[in-house]
Design a protein around this nucleic acid. Structure first.
Lengths: 186, 186, 186, 186
DNA sequence: CATGAATGAGTTTTCATTCAT
DNA sequence: GATGAATGAAAACTCATTCAT
């Protein structure tokens, strides 16, 4: 079996992803197969455990390559890449993403793990980078909001199939249409 | 002072909007200045009180005129109207909307008060109506998702000023740009 | 439909027989299809309703003919008659009897509806009468206790078939054996 | 002062014997001088606490020596022993026994702590044993019911003095008379 | 470093009963 | 004579957190 630390982290993630901050320390303890007190020794409060664990996941999973992609000179291709990449990632982590959005909407989350803020600011950064390279003046705020809206629509609105389960062609078509729409407004 | 019923309904809305299903009956009772039992006499369970009260608010506040707007023959104007109208409404009711989205993301809400579903399906209905009138064949699902995404982006992503506080001109500009972007993809 | 009074009495009996004093006024009101307050207007407290209603039932159903039977000169026949009669009655009203015994054992019942006391004293009375007629000196207390024990054994101890469902012959055999056993100790 | 466990068990017994399943966890907690939660930590539910504690008492107090007594070859002596032994025990634990009978009559008790069933089946076992040894064919069911009835009569029917407070001679007389009555029916 | 034991403060819900109409 | 509305008090059970070992 894994180390205590590993068990705790994995257990906490499992439980928090499923239930958010409402999850109880008891559930986490059970999932991790440790005593409740052990969690308190390590994290002192439930909130702190939540933040610590989730921040870690976010850093690992959502590490954005936006800046790399921003180097792509062709704006349409650049936008398509971002869209495809983020939709893939977000839809693959629907439970985590939903939970984080839910908590954010409740005002329960500090900046460090506020997913909308993270997404929005990293988008703005990437766009800024891209258009600076291209020496183009663009309403970045608006553009980032458009992209963010696209992402949210695939998480929150009902859909028959999550993005990541579509065929490569379907994914590309979607990304292309959205990219073109965004470009219209530049 | 108002009637008991009024006080209960108002109090329940106030508290539920602020805290969602996590709110306690005690809080509602205090806000409405009635005994907790009184709430149970009327609604049997907290969940039921929540649903009853919120459904009512939704029906009153979010009664959509989409079908009326759909009669507008000019697609761009039609889209602009929808966008302006919904953004105004949603941003004015940010707390309620945020709470409902949060609960939906948690899977706590039945269809009747599931805001994303309500928005999405009413959008699809309106679009269908509009393009049928115009005898135009359009990917309604995609189009509705775009619009939904726009709405969500103004609720969930950070913004310096809520939509409804912008000047008329700013509002129109925003609506126009989004409408044009949507049209690109038809 | 029946009169309000009838509905209340019947409903109360039904509910009280099933649940004893634990039954709630709400249940009674529902069963009788009247408002809870109506019950309070008539009986002022739940306890009082219970006593009033149950006393009535006891008087109607358990009206003992022991004194009549006591005229039977043949002691064995007399005992058999009592045994058959009471076992029939008690087993036919198992729910009511069980409930009353249960409440008595809890010390919840006043003398007027204390079934064990009623049974015991009416037995003693009958026996006294019978043996006075026969000019026989007998330990009435002991004898009544024996008979009472027999009755209780058929209510409380497990049995495959309630007494009243046995064949006439089986019933008689049982009564006879018990009667003879009692006579031994006179 | 005693250990927490001891205090809880004793307190629970005290309270449950007095009030049965109606007793509240609050009362038990107070009697045991612990917090209510502590009880839940240990027993999960009130029902479970009740069953656990009472089963324990039954096993300790009502451990039947019927099988030992059954070795007595003289049937009258055997029956007398059983009767004396059980009447002594039952009358000494009147409160516990009354409470258990009361709960049983309400159908609240599982087999493991259903006193009538326990008494009845242990009686049948003892009788079976005895008469097998003596190679005698007897209606055990009837006989056990007679004995059970005797026991019940001393618990439930009114009496001026509990059995265990009688003089040794009185006890013996009673046992003897009942034993002889039972023997008549073999 | 880990944990078994304990708890104060709440949470939803139920009940017998009263008040005003 | 009947009832809709309202309630104080209490019940079972849960939760985050601390203490002693």
């Amino acid at each position: 079996m894994q180390s205590v630390t590993e068990r705790i982290v994995k257990g906490a993630i499992t439980v928090f992803v499923k239930k958010g901050l409402q999850a109880t320390t008891k559930e986490v303890a059970k999932e991790a197969d440790v005593a409740e007190v052990t969690l308190y020794r390590r994290y002192s409060t439930k909130e702190n455990m939540f933040i610590t664990v989730i921040k870690n996941v976010l850093e690992k999973k959502f590490h954005s390559l936006v800046l790399e992609m921003a180097k792509e000179e062709n704006t349409e291709l650049f936008l398509m890449k971002i869209i495809e990449d983020r939709l893939e990632l977000l839809s693959k982590n629907k439970d985590l993403v939903s939970m984080l959005l839910s908590e954010t909407l409740r005002g329960n989350l500090t900046e460090q793990i506020n997913l909308p803020e993270i997404i929005f600011s990293s988008l703005k950064q990437g766009l800024e980078h891209h258009f600076k390279l291209k020496n183009q003046s663009v309403d970045i705020e608006f553009c980032a909001r458009q992209l963010g809206g696209i992402f949210l629509s695939y998480i929150i609105l009902p859909h028959p199939k999550p993005y990541y389960k579509l065929t490569a062609v379907e994914k590309q078509n979607i990304a292309k249409k959205h990219a073109q729409a965004v470009i219209t407004t530049l």
